[in-house]
């Protein structure tokens, strides 16, 4: 591991991400960081994958034509692009980060308005329109996270880091599929790091009842408690998670 916490893995598409718990130095001794392998193709891999895919090349050519028309003021062309990419933005960028369907829909509407206003400044970079739309959507999401106080998984600082990475992805020419994968992985990593920071019994209660949406009776039976006690355990579990997320894990990007 070098001084920046990166692991040298030449030729590999995996990055090692070290997450440092908030209470890393409690009781005067360091707690170990949580290490996680994250799939992250290099720029050359992305470029070569794209170069070898004639279907993708044809798609990009068609998309470029649409983008040029949209830039010239053709609303139908712009609508076609947004119809294609809007649902992906909602599912992989906005909803996981904002944590509320209503907020994510508001953010998507604001993203569209911003895109309609700013598309004239769009410059084709060879990787399609999606990475540019993704950066716009993330900036809108950041504004919303800052302006609305809610209980949520992501904090504004997480979005600032994500925007920084998304802008690098834009320069690297990351395509829509890889962007989507990366965003969904980031959400799951954030969730996992939060659950890893609390008691395992609490995280089990949250996984079963909240994430897997199992019935109270089923979860109570699994934990060996009564249903009313399960409610208390789940309440304590979410309180503990909220506290753990307050300081949060610091993600250090690890790459070759």
């Amino acid at each position: 591991m070098n001084s920046q916490g990166r692991v040298a893995t030449p030729g590999s598409s995996l990055r090692l991400v070290a997450e440092v718990p908030k209470d890393a130095n409690v009781y005067g001794r360091a707690r170990p960081s949580i290490l996680r392998l994250v799939h992250s193709p290099s720029t050359s891999e992305v470029a070569s994958a794209r170069a070898l895919d004639p279907v993708r090349i044809a798609e990009l050519a068609a998309e470029r034509e649409l983008a040029e028309r949209a830039k010239a003021g053709d609303r139908r062309a712009l609508a076609e692009l947004l119809r294609k990419y809007g649902p992906i933005l909602y599912r992989s960028v906005l909803l996981p980060r904002l944590g509320s369907e209503a907020m994510a829909q508001d953010a998507l509407a604001d993203t569209y308005v911003r895109v309609v206003e700013k598309f004239v400044h769009f410059e084709w970079r060879g990787c399609g329109v999606y990475p540019w739309l993704r950066v716009v959507a993330m900036r809108i999401a950041l504004d919303m996270l800052r302006s609305r106080k809610r209980e949520r998984l992501f904090e504004p600082d997480d979005l600032v880091r994500a925007i920084d990475m998304a802008e690098r992805d834009l320069d690297d020419g990351l395509d829509v599929r890889l962007c989507e994968e990366r965003d969904l992985e980031a959400s799951k990593a954030k969730l996992d790091s939060g659950l890893a920071a609390i008691n395992s019994r609490y995280s089990l209660a949250i996984r079963l009842r909240v994430l897997e949406e199992k019935s109270r009776e089923e979860v109570a039976a699994t934990l060996g408690v009564t249903v009313s006690t399960l409610d208390v355990v789940l309440h304590r579990a979410l309180k503990a998670l909220k506290k753990a997320l307050g300081g949060d894990a610091v993600e250090e990007e690890v790459s070759p």
Binding site: G99, S100, E151, L153, S187, K188, L191, V210, L211, K242
Partner: peptide, 10 residues
């Protein structure tokens, strides 16, 4: 709210 946010992230 936090629980739903977790669900939307997962």
């Amino acid at each position: 709210e936090l629980a739903f946010a977790l669900r939307h992230a997962a």
